[in-house]
Design a protein around this nucleic acid. Structure first.
Length: 478
RNA sequence: CGGGGUGUAGCGCAGCUGGUAGCGCGCCACAUUUGGGAUGUGGAUGCCGCAGGUUCGACUCCUGUCACUCCGACCA
């Protein structure tokens, strides 16, 4: 009981105040530290290591689908940004401007990239002449700046790390195919590496990216019932190509505008992980991206041979997974709590009694279930258990999502659910912007996406009652 | 950009009707501990957000200012 009490003092329970729980966790798990630069954050080694693991896996998936990494400048001249009307209108309110170089005022101010479509377009215009130059499949891992008014660690910061893929194709079909392909890459990644179920779909016109013809999204549901847009993939048509004068000569000898896509995901994914899997003891990291997959904790380490045996076990584990040993003189209980806070998927306890029996105790972070494992079987059991944790996390998240997904067939139901039951709400929509606005106004929900997996709930729009053939996910979002 | 709140040690806070700062946690040292956040003893740490004013004297009262934060509007 005493330790229970102490735990509550350490971090706020997620049921009491989810926002507070979140800020507690990101700080106490040593993921981030705040800085004097407002709205920006220091990503500490432990947090950055998660990003590196995400980066490594995703980058591999991009390479496998034929993409190459490049690096565009950080600054965009104002005139370049202004070339595409919708795009600049969408981003202008949140860009940071560079007005001086040293003490000299610049003739033309430069914006710090909020996204790099314009730079890629300028580049394409320079290098593309023939259909033989297409497609170009590019990606870059950089940071971008958006001058947000309110910020939260990982979810919304003024500068954030991300990956932005940009591709350009000879035909619309090919570009559309690419858009969907990359959305699927993200969805696979979220489900297979982050153990986070997502809803794949397309955004309504209202929620579309500035300058896009279609914006596809994967939406995840957080513990508190709010939706989080976890990655997006945009189809641009030839709008940017026309605005930037990108043309190529096709096989038929005619000059044509090519078709573009872009797609991205950010360090927000780390926020998504925290809010999907975390619990009252802190972070819970999916094994595939956890910086430490298993931590070895010697018990009664002052006794002869314990440290030595623990070190030997650790050295073996290191060969098969990301392992750590904690030989500090903190008490074992302290260490248990510490690594639980940090979300380490497995903990291996090894004490004198275990050594006598040639075994150890392995404890799962997600369920605290204990396994007695023979020291001779670690090499096979640990990878198995890591997979068990992954599956456990995924299934728990999936179950939670289905328990928190509701159906509304008229406005009263919609308002009632939106007010009383946090989660996704499935409802039909006629396609009118007015209805979408009305739902925001009256129920406080926004459209999350039009899912690929459609169900016919009813034949009429949840708002106006007119015939409707699209089922949408609605909800409150981050 | 509208409405509210808060600025005091690394963090969380207390400090009444003015008298020059304290508590908890953390940190450092030593000892005893070690199977779920240990205990004892000793120690270090402050331009009381900033600038003015009132006063013999301001963390305290007044004015201004800046910062942060929560709730709304905008957003990955």
């Amino acid at each position: 009981m005493a330790e229970q009490k102490k735990m509550v003092e350490e971090i706020t329970s997620m049921d009491v105040d989810f926002a507070k729980w979140y800020t507690d966790v990101v700080k106490k798990a040593e993921l981030v530290e705040y800085t004097s630069v407002k709205g920006c954050m220091v990503i500490r080694p432990y947090g950055y290591a998660i990003w590196e693991n995400i980066q490594k896996t995703l980058d591999g998936m991009f390479k496998e689908t034929g993409h190459e990494n490049v690096c565009m400048p950080m600054f965009i001249p104002e005139s370049l940004l202004n070339k595409e009307k919708d795009h600049v209108e969408g981003f202008a309110p949140e860009v940071a401007w560079v007005t001086h170089g040293g003490s000299e005022k610049l003739e033309e101010r430069l914006c710090v990239r909020p996204t790099s479509e314009t730079l890629f377009c300028e580049h394409y215009a320079n290098i593309i002449q023939s259909y033989r130059d297409l497609p170009k499949l590019y990606n870059q891992w950089v940071s971008v700046v958006r001058w947000e008014k309110t910020t939260r660690p990982f979810l919304r910061t003024r500068e954030f790390l991300w990956q932005e893929g940009h591709t350009i194709h000879a035909t619309a079909e090919e570009a559309q195919e690419e858009t969907i392909k990359m959305l699927n890459v993200y969805a696979d990644f979220c489900e297979n590496c982050l153990a986070m179920p997502v809803v794949k779909g397309v955004k309504t016109a209202k929620e579309r990216f500035a300058g896009a013809e279609d914006t596809y999204t994967i939406e995840a549901l957080m513990h508190d019932g709010k939706a989080l847009q976890s990655a997006t993939s945009h189809y641009f048509g030839d709008g940017f190509a026309k605005a930037f004068g990108i043309q190529f000569q096709d096989r038929d000898n005619k000059l044509k505008h090519p078709f573009q896509t872009s797609w991205g995901c950010t360090t927000r994914l780390i926020g998504a992980l925290i809010m999907t899997h975390g619990d009252d003891n802190g972070l819970v990291l999916p094994p595939k991206v956890a910086p430490i997959q298993i931590v070895v904790i010697p018990v009664a380490s002052h006794k002869a041979g314990v440290k030595e045996k623990a070190t030997e076990v650790y050295e073996n584990l290191k060969k098969i997974c990301r392992a750590k040993i904690d030989l500090s003189d903190n008490s074992p209980g302290w260490k248990y709590a510490e690594y639980e806070m940090k979300g380490v998927p497995l903990r291996l306890e090894l004490g004198p009694r275990d050594i006598e029996n040639n075994q150890c105790v392995v404890v799962r972070r997600d369920t605290r279930e204990k396994y007695f494992v023979s020291l001779d079987e670690l090499e096979t059991k640990i990878p198995e258990l890591l997979q068990v944790v992954h599956d456990g996390l995924y299934n728990a998240a999936l179950e939670r999502r289905s328990n928190m997904t509701y159906v509304a067939s008229n406005m009263d139901e919609m308002i009632d659910i939106a007010e009383n039951k946090p989660g996704f709400i499935k409802a039909m929509w006629c396609g009118d912007r007015e209805c979408e606005d009305a739902l925001k106004e009256q129920a406080g929900v926004t459209s999350r996406c039009i899912p690929f997996a459609q169900e016919k709930i009813s034949g009429t729009c949840v708002c106006c009652g007119k015939p409707a053939d699209k089922m949408l996910y609605w909800g409150k979002a981050y």
